[in-house]
């Protein structure tokens, strides 16, 4: 299965279509860090929010690059389950590369600062919280992108609609006072937590929430793939 993951990543990189989400990610990060300096945990929390739709879009592109017949050839060769899993794993690898860029970027442009006042978090703690926020966004973004992919959504318009609704919904439903925050992945709640009091129980709860949402979305993706044949 690792060979299929490598082949899909190679296809993603060789078409040049990987550039579009990369550039989009750099633009949003540049905008985010262009306004001033912030402490790492707070900055990374917002970074994970703005990267969420970019990672989902990147996943959709990666999965859509492969022609339908080639995807079926892979399915015949490695089996249904491994073909599905290989696509998701390739998307996760691509997302982790983007996360690495997002974590390094603010240090290159001077967008973060160390503790300013007594009681501020140390830089290592801030980076750890930022890494957690981004890693929590990855499975949810990959699941959303997979749901929006051609093999799952069917037509191109449906795919764009799923991506747009998922991206906007994650922000709107995640606002404070939302009536149905559980319908969205906890990226907004994560950003609030990294900016405020990050208690261990809160982190654990958000992690479980994010994983549960991602699992449900992946389940939906697998169900759609099965229904699409």
């Amino acid at each position: 299965m690792s060979a299929l993951v490598r082949m899909r990543l190679a296809g993603f990189l060789r078409t040049g279509r990987a550039l579009a989400p990369l550039l989009a990610g750099l633009v949003v990060l540049g905008t985010l860090y262009g306004g001033g300096r912030a402490q790492p945990a707070e900055a990374y929390g917002v970074s994970a929010v703005v990267l969420f739709p970019v990672l989902a879009w990147q996943t959709k592109i990666l999965l859509d690059i492969e022609p339908d017949v080639q995807r079926r050839l892979a399915q015949v060769t490695v089996g249904v389950a491994r073909e599905r899993l290989a696509g998701l794993l390739a998307a996760v690898v691509a997302a982790l590369v983007a996360v690495a860029v997002a974590l390094v970027f603010p240090w290159l442009v001077g967008g973060v600062t160390g503790p300013v006042e007594p009681g501020d978090r140390s830089v290592p703690v801030g980076i750890a919280l930022g890494l957690w926020a981004h890693l929590l966004a990855v499975p949810a973004a990959v699941a959303l992108g997979a749901l929006a992919s051609r093999a799952s959504a069917g037509g191109a318009a449906y795919g764009v609609a799923v991506l747009a609704l998922g991206g906007v919904g994650a922000v709107v439903l995640g606002l404070s006072g939302s009536v149905a925050p559980w319908l969205a992945p906890p990226i907004m709640a994560t950003a609030r937590t990294t900016a405020g009091d990050a208690a261990a129980l809160t982190l654990l709860g958000l992690t479980l929430w994010g994983l549960a949402w991602s699992a449900a979305a992946v389940g939906g993706y697998l169900w759609r793939r099965r229904a699409q044949g």
């Binding site: 082949m7 190679a10 296809g11 022609p67 050839l73 060769t77 490695v78």
Partner: peptide, 18 residues
């Protein structure tokens, strides 16, 4: 499905590994 960014050799090697 020829609309793929591989050479013949690289594609076949990839499929053999798959």
């Amino acid at each position: 499905p020829a609309d793929q960014p591989f050479t013949v050799s690289r594609y076949l090697t990839g499929m053999a590994r798959v």
